[in-house]
Design a protein around this nucleic acid. Sequence first.
RNA 1: GCCGGAGUGGCGGAAUGGCAGACGCGCUGGAUUCAAAAUCCAGUGAUCGCAAGAUCGUGCGGGUUCAAGUCCCGCCUCCGGUACCA
Length: 952
Amino acid sequence: MPRYNPAEIEPRWQAFWERHKTFATPEMPDLAGGKKKRYILDMFPYPSGDGLHVGHPEGYTATDIVSRFARMRGDSVLHPMGFDAFGLPAEEHAIKTGEHPRIQTYRNIETFTRQLKMLGFSYDWDRSLATTDEGYFRWTQAIFLVLYDTWFDAERQVGRPIAELPIPAEIAAEGPAAIARYQDRQRLAYQDDALVNWCPALGTVLANEEVVDGLSERGAYPVQRIPLRQWMLRITAYAERLEDGLDELDWPAGIKKLQRDWIGRSSGAEVDFYIGDQASFAGWMASRQGKPLTDVPAGDVLRVYTTRPDTLYGATYMVIAPEHPLVDALTAPSQAAQVKAYRDQASFKSDRERTEGDRAKTGVFTGSYAINPVHGQPIPIWVADYVLATYGTGAIMAVPAHDIRDFEFAVTFGLPVVPVIEPPADANDRDQVLAGKACFVGSGKVIGSGEFDGRDSADVKAEITQRLAGQGLGREAVNYKLRDWLFSRQRFWGEPFPILHEVDAQGQPTGVKRAVPDDQLPVKLPELADFKPHGRPEPPLEKAADDWLYVTLDGVRYKRETNTMPQWAGSCWYYLRYIDPKNTHALIDPVKERAWMPVDLYVGGAEHAVLHLLYSRFWHKVLFDRGHVSTPEPFGRLINQGMILGEVEFTGYQNEADEWVSSRDVRRDPQNNRVDARGSAVRAVVVPEDDVEKAGDAFVLKADPAIRIDSRAHKMSKSRGNVVNPDAVVREYGADSLRLYEMFMGPLEATKPWSMAGVGGVRGFLDRVWRMIVDERADEMGLSPAVVDEPCDAEQARVLHGTIKRVTEDTESLGFNTAIARMMEFTNFFTRCERRPREAMEAIVTLLAPYAPHVAEELWQCLRGDERPASDCVSTRAWPQWDEAALVQSEIEVPVQINGKLRGKVMVPAGADEAVVLAAAREDQRIAEMLSGKTLVKSIYVPGRLVNLVIK
RNA sequence: GCCGGAGUGGCGGAAUGGCAGACGCGCUGGAUUCAAAAUCCAGUGAUCGCAAGAUCGUGCGGGUUCAAGUCCCGCCUCCGGUACCA
C-alpha cells in the first residue's frame, strides 16, 4: 500500500526543513576541531517570466549535494540563493503593458522561489536577496561611489583614495576647479563621450547584444552609432592584476584562457614616425637623440604601436584609423573629398560591423607621407578601417610581408611588399615570401635590415626597440585589448547613479559633480507614469518629476544623474552581501567577511566566462585596495556546468516532390538554405525513432537504407519546441528523480542531451530503494520484514563499506554520476538479500540524502520509527565512515595475460607475493598449455591487478 | 581562419598506462498474472562456433610500451566560442 509517492512526501519534508530551519547558516563558521567553513555558491539567476529551465537545477543540484555533504561532515556551510533582477525584459514588459517592472520582477522572483523550494535545495532562504531590493542597491550605489572616489596608482599598482592623488603644481596653480577636473580624469568611474547604439525607430539605445548586423534584434530597424556622454569604469587600470591574479585560481583552464585573451596583453614598441618633409628629417632625428618619448606625441610625428619592431625595415606604408585625430592634418587637399567620404561611411559602422563579414580591405590614401626612421625613406599614409582607433595608438606601420592584414591590404591597393624575415628552410612557401608574393608571420633570419641582417628575428625585436629608445624615437610598450567598461545605460530598470550635477541659475550643468552623501543613499528610482521611450537618446529618468530630478544641497542646486547602471552591476558583488545580508551600516561586516570569504566553490554557466567573472573580479580588487574585503580574489574554485540539450532528434530531408534526400547530399547554399546536390531546396522532416536504424556509423531510414538521417540533440529553445519544463518533470517523477537524473546524465561539465526515459530510469532506482526498506504490501507505512536487526555478513559488509568509500570519494571529487551508480549497485545487491541488516539500510539512506533528500528523510523516519526526536532528520546526520578492514578479501581473482591478451584468471590469497602469484598463473591448466613449448621471456605482476607473461 | 571541448555498444555514459563497455535506458527470453501493467530473474559489442572458445573492436593512420580508450606524432568529423587588437 505505501508506495513511493514523491508528490506527497516532498512538500511535507520541505515544510519540515523550513519549520526547523534545518539549513540555517551560522553567523560565523564553527572551526573547532579542524572543521572547515565552506562557501558554496551558485550563479544567481535572472528571474525571467518563463520560470526555471532544466538547465538551472543542474548546477544547483550539484552545489546542493556538495553543501549537504559538507554539513553532514560537520563543516559550516554558507549556501545562499538570490536574484539578478534588474534587466531589460521586465522593462520591455512594462513598456508593453504599463505594469511597473517591479511588479513583474517580484512576481517572477516568487515563481522562481517556489520552483527552487520545490526541488528541495538547502539554501538558507533568510539570506536571499534581489539586486532590485532597495536595501541591496543602496550598497551597489555605495560601491560605485568607492570607484568614483578611487584613482589607480600605476606605479604601486593599487587603487587609492582620490584625495591622495598628487596634483601637479601647474594644475594646483589654476585653482580648485582645475584640480577637480584633474581628479575627475583620474577616477575609476569617469564620464566620457562614447558611442552608443541608438535606434531611432524604437526610440531607444540598445545594448551591443541587441544589435545584429547593424539592425535591432527586435524589429530589424537600423541602428546608428552616436556619441553620448557615458559613465565609464577604468577596468583597464587593473588589466595587469586581473591577468596575474588568474594564476592562483582553481578555474577551468579554458575559462582562464578566455579571460587572458579578453584582457589581451601584448607587448612591443611605440615608434614615432616623422611626418615633416624629408629635408628636415635629419634635423628632426638629431633633435630627438637621447630624449625620452613624450607621453603625448608631438604634432610632427605619427606614433604607432607594433608588436613586431623586428620588421620595421619592412614597413612600406602606414595606416591610421578613420577616427584618428591626425586625419585632417595628414589629408592633402587633392585627397580631401575621398577621405571625407570614406570617414563618413566608416562612421555609420560599428566596430563590430567593421570587423565582420568578408573582411575585404578598404581604405584611401591621405596624400601624405611619413618617414621610416630606420632607413629615412618616405612611405605613404593611408586611412583604413581595419585599423581601430581604440587600440594602441590608432595607427600602425604596415609590414605586408609579415602581417596577413597588411598583406591583403597591400595586394588590394598595389602597395610594395618587402620581406625582411627569411622563413626557415622547411617553410613551404618560402620562395614566394622572399619574392614578396606571400606573407610569413613567423620568426626567422632577418634580411634587408642593415646591421641586423643574419640575426634571429626574435632577438632583434628587443634590440631595435633599445636602439629606437636611445634615439628618442621609440620605447617599449604594452597594450591590452580590454577596453574601459561602458557602465551607463539609457534605461529605467536599473540602479540610479548616486551622482549629482551642479546646475546654474538657468538650469544648465556647470560641469561640477558631487557624490550623493552616504546618509542619503539609496537613490531610489522615481515613480514614472509611463515607461514608453520618448524618442530622444536620453535616459527615461529625464521624464521624472522635478522633485526627484532636482536636489538642493548646502544651498547649491543639482540635477540628478539620469543614466542607470547596467545589469552587471548588481551581480558584481552579491556574493559578499549573502554573508551579511541585513547589514544597514556597511556593505559587509569585515569580521564576517574575513570568516567566510573567499567563495570555495562557484558553479555556473560558461556564458559568464568573461564578462560577469571579470567585472566582479575587478570590483573585488578595488574593494580589496580600499580595505573593504580581505581576499585579492573572490572565487577560489570555479566549475562550469555543461549545457543540457533537448532530446535527440532524427531529422530527414525531403525535396519539393516529397522524395527523401539522403542527409549526405544535403548542403547549404550561399543564402544558408538547405539544398540537395542539384541545388534545389529541401526541407527538414522529423523522423520517428522507430523508422530509423543504424548502418555503419550513421542512421538510415529502415524503409530505404540509402537515405541517411541526421541524429543529434539541439539546444533547447521555444521555437524548436524541445524545452523541458521542470514543473512537469516534478509532477510526473518527483523532485528527487529530477535531481538524481540531472546528476546521473554524465559529468557535470559535459554537454548532454535530455532523455525522459532516463528520468524514468532513476525513478525506478528510487522505487527499488523504497521497496528494499519499506513493506509495500502492508496497509500502514512500515519496514519490510527483510530489514533485520543483525550485523552484516562478510560479503554484505564488503559491499556496504565499499559503497560508503566510493560514494564519499566520488562526491568529494564531484563525480556525482558514478556515485549514483555505486548506490545503484548497492541496491541491486541488497535487494537480492533476504536479510537486509538495518545498519546497511541506515547507511545507504544517509549516503542518498544529499542526492535525493526527500525520499531519504522519509526512509530514515521509517527506519528510526517513532522513537526519534521530532527534529531528528537524516539531513543533519553524520556522514558514515567506511571500515577499511571490511574491504579486505581473503582471496582475490587475478587476470592472467599472455603477450598482453587475457587468457585466464587465477584465484590467489590476498597479499600473496609475486612468486606465488606467478607460480599460480603458470600452473593454471589453460595457461600451462599455452606456455608449453614456448620460452617465457618476461613475467610481469602488477600487485593485485594482473599477470602478464611474455613468451616466444 | 583562430581558440576551446569531444569522438567508446542501438542510446546516455564508466574505466590511477593493467580484465574495455561499470551503472542506467532500450531490447530479448523466462517467472508471476485469467490478462495486462507493475515486479522479479537471466541475457545483451561484432563475427564465427552446438559448445569450449577464437578473431576483431574505443573516429582514421603511424609510434612508444610487456601492456594504450588512456602517452607521443600526423589527420578527419562534430559541438561550442570568437572575429582584422597591429
